[in-house]
Design a protein around this nucleic acid. Structure first.
Lengths: 235, 235
DNA sequence: CCTTGAGGGATTGTTCAACAACTCTCTAGG
DNA sequence: CCTAGAGAGTTGTTGAACAATCCCTCAAGG
């Protein structure tokens, strides 16, 4: 196909199309890759080729690399010097580590809760309901998403930006682990009702008991994930 | 000064000099800027000009921007689209937020400790001793550093990579706040002995009591910092 | 047969220069 | 005093070039 000598206008049009929102190109590329990684479209261990992605995404290598950096610091990609970026393969130590921090944050947040009211718990109700609905439909992907949202909203009750951010990273990494293991989705089932139970305890203002239940909950979840991991040596 | 037509060899020599260690140029630039920020050489609110730093550091804008990203994700710089990167100015909300997460992590780590022995506590002893020594000399900068190390080593007892990383970010940001406020260094004095007391409790295996003391400790520290902040409206 | 090491191709790391897009400031006009 | 807009200065993004490194292959030597 013939091209005009001056293609400057093409770039400006392309820019207009892409930057309709208020974020940089790198951030949008990162957002795109993030969803791909979290959805499991890119299996752990996959190498993300710069050349290839530049071709597909129509961004420059520099911009792509900036997106890589963003995701690397979220733990969704790992960067090996002179080798490229990969979707991380979490091992058992990582799982234990993830759950360690998770217990620390979530349980402590719950334990320190006070002055709860129905309004603040509303987002939790929504997440639990979404989970139950998804479970009824047998849509375990959606159930997993709802579960993540439940826990994110749970820590959000603390009202701390940094706790929210730390938790978001944590849950994203954990999601990665789920895909790595291809865990039987039925394993998610008990947590739908346990989320409900947890929410009931919070509604009743029983924070200490809720914290204890959450602790056991997370221990069980960790144990099951580890078992699934051992039963599923390498995909 | 005259230059030869071909300066390629210059770049390769320069690269050899700079990359003697096993990290990328961006990481080394980040390390340099990190220390400047943490030491307080760059006051909060300072804008870091790309043009200027490229000139001084002899790296390309791309590499510099990669370093910026690194530090941005550590909370040591903030990035405003189309405006540049700045040394953050933490406000009271940030202080509260920082201490909120700090209490969560540090107290929980201490509370869950078990199987402590002298060997594992050794790094803590070293940090406490360093703090006491610095205090005797009246070197409050060193005392602050020792204090940071004490708390970093404290959470390190949990043996969790992610807890370590989260804490490192936390403490770095906090350090920023100290400089922002130009807090009277005398305020650091009581914490030297409180660190010692904390360590004694741990040595005795009294983790629950240690956690309670740490909680009070952090509350006091937060209160003093907030008071200092209010007394020091804007520098 | 296994190990070792020297090409050589492919990919990442870094730089540079150019231009687009945005913010900030200052000024002219209301 | 306020507002619109032009201009200057800075950041955002691109594409090309080359250096540095990794990885695979293959051959020589044990």
């Amino acid at each position: 196909m013939p091209e005009s000598a001056d293609t400057t206008w093409l770039r400006t049009v392309a820019h207009e199309v892409r930057s309709f929102d208020r974020s940089s190109t790198a951030e949008r590329v990162a957002e795109l890759l993030r969803s791909r990684v979290i959805e499991g479209d890119l299996p752990p261990g996959t190498r993300l080729s710069e050349e290839q992605l530049v071709e597909v995404l129509h961004v420059s290598r520099n911009t792509l690399r900036e997106a890589f950096r963003l995701l690397t610091h979220e733990g969704l990609l790992v960067h090996r010097l002179h080798r490229g970026v990969f979707v991380p393969e979490l091992d058992e130590d990582d799982l234990v580590d993830l759950y360690r921090l998770r217990r620390t944050i979530e349980c402590d947040v719950v334990r320190r809760l006070e002055g709860l009211d129905a309004v603040r718990l509303r987002p939790l109700h929504a997440a639990v309901a979404a989970g139950e609905d998804a479970a009824r439909r047998g849509d375990w992907g959606a159930a997993g998403t709802a579960n993540m949202r439940f826990h994110q909203q749970l820590v959000a009750l603390a009202g701390s930006r940094r706790i929210d951010e730390t938790t978001a990273r944590l849950l994203a990494e954990l999601r990665l682990a789920f895909h790595a293991i291809a865990v039987p989705q039925r394993l998610h089932e008990p947590y739908v009702s346990r989320n409900r139970a947890l929410l009931d305890l919070l509604t009743a203002g029983e924070v200490e008991q809720a914290a204890k239940e959450l602790e056991a909950y997370l221990h069980d979840s960790e144990a099951e994930l580890l078992a699934a991991h051992r039963a599923h040596p390498r995909s």
